[in-house]
Amino acid sequence: MYTQYEALTGTLRGACNTVTRLKKLLVIVDPDDDSDFVIERAILLAFYGKADVLLVMNKANALPQHSDVQPGLAARFFRSQKQLFTEHYQARLAALKTRFETQGINTETYFTSDKNSADVILRKIREFEPDMTLKSVQATSALSRILITNTDWKLVKGCPTPLLLVKACPWAEDGAILTAVDPLHTKAQQNQLDHLMLDTTVNLARSLQLNARVFHCYFPDLSAMFPKVVDAELYIREVREIHWSKVKALLGEHGLSEDQATLTRGDLIKTLSQTIRTARANILVLGALSRNAVESAIIGSTAEKILYDTPCDVLIMKHNG
């Protein structure tokens, strides 16, 4: 049986390195949202990291292609409309480029009107090789929940770099970067991933002058008490000590103090959301391991709930290899 925590750290495949320095950022710009929070995040990260930025926008054009239109007035009309369409979005990118450049950030732009948005963006990510990719996820006003689109999920699963999913909320000035670790994970790769995430958290927190925090949730297997007669409180206390000792070892290896960690028991989603609010977390750092189809089906709903319900940005990192 998979633990709640394995559900949190599963489903995805790919590779990435520790974010020690942000030299290059790729920013996916929403063509339909002028108040995109991803732009503010990118300016902040690029400014502090002295990073170069590539702004990427994809907006599918519903107009007929040249091959679908007979020569003549109609063809000329559609060509002119397509040109106006392209110029409109390129002008938006140019205006955003100016915003970055006024902050001393070297910025380039790339516009495409491909129908397969995720595929073209993933190709650009592999070509540009950024240290981090940024993408906004939008809240639906009717349901007051985050909308994770099909394109978002393809990027989450296929992005070869750390992927920052940006929520439409401002960062707290005295906020934190919170990493969810699992030092008792059954896969050895998770141990390496925990170290990658903690290195990234410490480096980003230092660069952005934020607090570094660590989160771990455990859920005691009460069935282990039966058929033996075991004192429940004693058993739960022993389980807590096992988990806490592993967390403390991780903290020590990364120069973090015990008061920078939160250890919770029970409902993962509930306790994680509470910790995010208490710590005033601006970013939640999650790890992702590759899994087979059956495992992905089991834990996909948990990963989706995490992305939907966490009240802060989510940085997804993957095991290097």
Rank of each mutant, 00 (worst) to 15 (best):
L12N: 03
G14D: 07
T18N: 09
R21D: 12
L22S: 06
K24L: 12
L26E: 05
V27A: 02
V27T: 13
V29S: 08
D30V: 11
D34M: 11
F37K: 13
F37T: 13
E40D: 15
E40Y: 13
R41M: 08
R41P: 07
I43K: 13
L44T: 14
D52A: 12
A62Q: 08
A62F: 12
P64L: 11
Q65W: 08
Q65V: 06
S67G: 05
S67I: 13
S67Q: 14
D68K: 06
D68H: 12
P71C: 03
L73S: 07
L73N: 11
A74F: 02
A75P: 00
A75K: 11
F77H: 13
F78E: 08
S80E: 11
Q81P: 00
Q81I: 02
K82S: 15
K82G: 14
Q83I: 05
T86P: 00
H88V: 06
Y89H: 15
Q90W: 07
L93Q: 09
A94W: 00
T98A: 01
F100D: 02
E101R: 06
T107Q: 04
Y110S: 15
F111A: 12
T112Q: 13
I121L: 14
I121G: 03
R123H: 10
K124E: 08
P130A: 14
D131W: 00
M132V: 14
M132A: 14
A142M: 01
S144H: 07
R145H: 07
R145W: 00
L147M: 10
L147V: 05
I148K: 00
